[in-house]
Amino acid sequence: MRRIVPLLALCLAATGLAACTAADTTPPAAPAGITAQAGSATSVHVMWQAPDPADGVTNYQVFQAGRLVRELPADKTMVDVTGLTPQTAYAFTVRARDAAGNTSAPGASAEATTAAAKAEDRQAPTAPARTTGRAEGPRAATLSWTAATDDTGVTAYDVYQAGIRIHTAGPAETATTLTGLQPDTAYTFTVRARDGADNSSPDGPAVEVTTPPSPGRGPNTAPADFTATASPGAVTLTWTAPDTGRPTNEYELHVNGRPVTVIQFGAGAVPASGAARVSHRLTVTEPAGTQWTLKLRARLPDGNWGAFSAERSIVLTA
C-alpha cells in the first residue's frame, strides 16, 4: 500500500549539515472500476471507485478520446459529461492526481453510446412503481425496482440518497449494487427514470436499508423508527432511543446534510433501551414550501456520536 509521508533527511554537504526534503515522485494508483452509462442523447454518466486514503489523491481528470473534459475534487467519483452527439460511441478514461502533482496512469477505458435524439420531447417517464432493497454486508446494498415507461423510451435509472444522485444504471437494468456505504447506518434510497431528452420522472417509492455493524462494533446505535411531521410553524420529530445500556439524553439533528442543533433532554428523560417513543418539537421560521431532509444521531455513553437514523424528507407548511 502506498503512503504519502513527508521525509526529512539530513544531507551531509561540504560546508556541514544541511536539511533537505525528499520530493514525492510516486504517482497514485490508477482509478479502478470505471463505468460509463449514457444518460440521454447528449450526456454520459462516468463513475469510478473511491481511492485508498493512503494514495493521497486530491483530484481526478476525466478524458474522452485523450482530451481532458472534466476535473473533479477527490471526494467526487462520478460526473455527467454533457454536450455530446446523439447516437455516438464514446470512450472515457480517468486519472488521479496527488498534492505533489503526480498523475496516475489512466484507468481502464469505459465506453458508452448516446441515445437517439427525440425532437420536442417534454414528457417525463413514469416513476418506478416499486423499490426494494437489502444490505449486502456492512458496506454495500442491493436495490431493485420495477421498470418505468416513457413515450420515447427510458435511457437510464438514477439512484438518489438524501436528494443527491449517487448512481446511474442502464435502461435495461432493474437492480444495482451500491458500495462504499457505512456500517450500522440507515439509508433511504429513491429511483428516478430518465429519457433521451433528460426528462426525469418523479421519485419512485423510498426504500430504507440499514447496514449491519462491522464485526466487534456492538449493538445498533441508530435511533429507530424516526419520523418528521410538518405543521404550521413547527416540525415534530419522534423516534425510539437506541439500546446503549444507558439513557441517551443528547441528539444531534442534521438538516439537508448539515448539523443544525443539539437536542438535549433532562437526566433520565429518554429511555435507555427503546422502551418508549421520544418526541421533540422544533419551531421553524422558514417559508412554507421549504424542503428539508432530516436525520439525527445519539450521543453514546462513551461520548462519541452513534449511527444516523433513517432520513426523512418534509415540506414546511404555513
Rank of each mutant, 00 (worst) to 15 (best):
M1Y: 12
R3C: 11
R3A: 14
I4N: 08
L8G: 02
A19Q: 14
C20A: 15
A23T: 15
A23L: 13
D24G: 07
T25W: 07
P28D: 08
A30F: 12
P31M: 04
G33S: 08
T35D: 11
A36Y: 02
A36K: 00
A38S: 12
G39R: 06
S40R: 05
T42F: 15
T42A: 14
M47E: 15
W48Q: 00
Q49E: 13
N59L: 10
Y60I: 02
F63M: 10
A65N: 05
R67G: 09
V69M: 09
L72T: 01
K76E: 15
T77R: 11
V79R: 02
G83L: 12
L84T: 13
L84S: 08
L84Q: 07
Q87M: 12
Q87V: 14
T88I: 09
F92V: 07
R95Y: 08
R95L: 05
A96G: 06
A96P: 03
D98T: 01
G107I: 06
G107Q: 02
A108C: 10
S109L: 06
S109H: 05
E111S: 12
T114M: 11
K118A: 14
K118R: 14
E120R: 11
R122S: 13
P125K: 05
A129T: 14
R130T: 14
T132C: 04
P138E: 07
W145F: 11
W145Q: 01
D150K: 01
D150T: 04
D151E: 14
G153Q: 07
T155E: 11
Y157V: 08
Y157Q: 06
Q161K: 12
G163W: 04
R165V: 12
G170S: 12
A172T: 15
T174A: 07
A175E: 13
A175F: 10
T176S: 08
L178S: 03
L181V: 09
L181T: 11
Q182A: 15
Q182M: 15
D184Q: 02
A186I: 09
T188C: 09
F189H: 01
A193N: 01
R194L: 06
D195G: 07
P202D: 09
D203Y: 09
G204E: 02
P212W: 04
P213I: 13
S214Q: 14
S214F: 06
R217P: 00
G218Y: 06
P223N: 02
A224F: 03
A224P: 01
T227Q: 04
T227K: 05
A228K: 00
A228T: 01
A228G: 00
T229S: 09
P232N: 10
A234D: 12
V235A: 04
L237D: 01
L237F: 02
T238L: 04
T238S: 10
W239I: 03
T240W: 10
T240S: 10
T240I: 15
P242A: 04
D243H: 07
D243F: 03
E250Q: 11
N256A: 06
G257E: 05
P259W: 06
I263R: 07
G266I: 08
A269S: 15
P271W: 06
A276P: 02
A276D: 12
R277F: 09
V278H: 07
P287H: 10
T290W: 03
Q291Y: 07
T293R: 06
L294W: 01
R299C: 11
G303R: 05
G306M: 01
G306Y: 00
A307N: 05
E311N: 04
I314R: 02
